[in-house]
Computed example of a mutant assay.
Amino acid sequence: MHNYIEFLEGHLGEIQYGWDKDSEGNILPFQIVKYKKGPFSGTVTYSTLGLSKQNLVSPISKKEIRQELIFVSYANFGDKNIPGILQHVGLQAINNNVAYLRGDVIGPYGRLFEQSSLEALYASIPVYFRETFQAFKVDGDLPIIQTWLFPITFDEAKFIKENGWDEFENRLVELDPDLVDFKRQNIIR
C-alpha cells in the first residue's frame, strides 16, 4: 500500500487529512482522504483508500476488480457531504461485492448538496487527470483502478438509463460542462 500512496500523492498532492469513521462513529473498512491538489488550479481531490483491499466483481464480465473511488471539488467548496457520499458508495460496493463500471449511475438519492440540483453520481474514467492515473499496476496482483465519481442531475441519470452512457459522454464532450461545479445546470434539455 505504501507505493500506492506514493502513486496517489504523485498525482494528487500530499494527503491533507482523512476520515476512518462514519458520522455515527463506526469504524469503516476503508478511509476517505483529502489531497492537496485536484486536476487543475483551485480544485482538490478526495478518494477512498483501502477499498481496493477487497476484490469486487464486475457485474458484466464477472472478473475481479480492485478499485478506489475518486471525487473532485473546488477547494473553496469545503468538505460538506463529500466524505459521507464516498463512504456510502464504497460501503455499497463492498456490501454488494460489485465494482462500479464506466457509465454506472448511482442514485438518484435527492439533492447531494444544498442549493444544487445534482442528485446522482456517474462513474467514469478520471479524464480530468493524466492518463497514468487511471490504473496503478501491482506486480503479481490485479491493478488498482481509479474510478471517478461526479454528481449528475435526475434528468441526466434518466437520460443515461434511456440512451446509454456513450450518448451521455458524447453530450459531455459536445457541451463541456464544468463537472466540478456542483451548482451547474442540467445538460439535458
Rank of each mutant, 00 (worst) to 15 (best):
M1F: 13
H2P: 08
Y4M: 02
Y4I: 01
Y4F: 15
F7R: 00
L8S: 04
H11G: 00
G13N: 06
I15V: 15
I15S: 08
Q16E: 14
G18Q: 09
G25I: 01
L28Q: 09
L28P: 02
Y35D: 00
K37S: 10
G38Y: 00
G38N: 01
P39W: 03
G42S: 08
G42M: 10
V44F: 00
V44K: 00
L49N: 13
G50Q: 13
L51S: 13
L51W: 04
L51Y: 10
K53L: 09
Q54P: 04
N55I: 11
S61V: 03
K63H: 13
K63Y: 10
K63G: 05
E64W: 10
R66V: 01
R66K: 15
Q67I: 02
E68L: 06
E68G: 02
I70F: 01
I70E: 00
S73V: 14
S73A: 14
A75Y: 08
F77C: 08
D79K: 12
K80L: 14
I82D: 03
I82P: 03
P83Y: 03
L86Y: 06
G90S: 12
V98P: 02
V98Y: 07
V98F: 09
A99P: 04
R102P: 06
G103C: 02
G103N: 01
I106K: 08
P108Q: 11
Y109P: 11
G110V: 06
G110P: 03
R111M: 07
L112M: 08
Q115Y: 09
S116G: 09
E119K: 14
I125P: 02
T132R: 01
Q134H: 04
A135L: 05
G140V: 04
P143M: 05
I144R: 00
I145V: 15
W148Q: 09
L149F: 14
P151C: 11
I152C: 08
I152R: 13
E156S: 07
E156L: 04
A157V: 08
F159R: 03
F159E: 00
N163M: 04
W165R: 06
N170T: 13
R171G: 03
V173K: 13
E174S: 11
D176Y: 10
D176P: 05
D178E: 13
D181K: 10
D181A: 12
F182G: 06
F182N: 14
R184P: 05
Q185F: 10
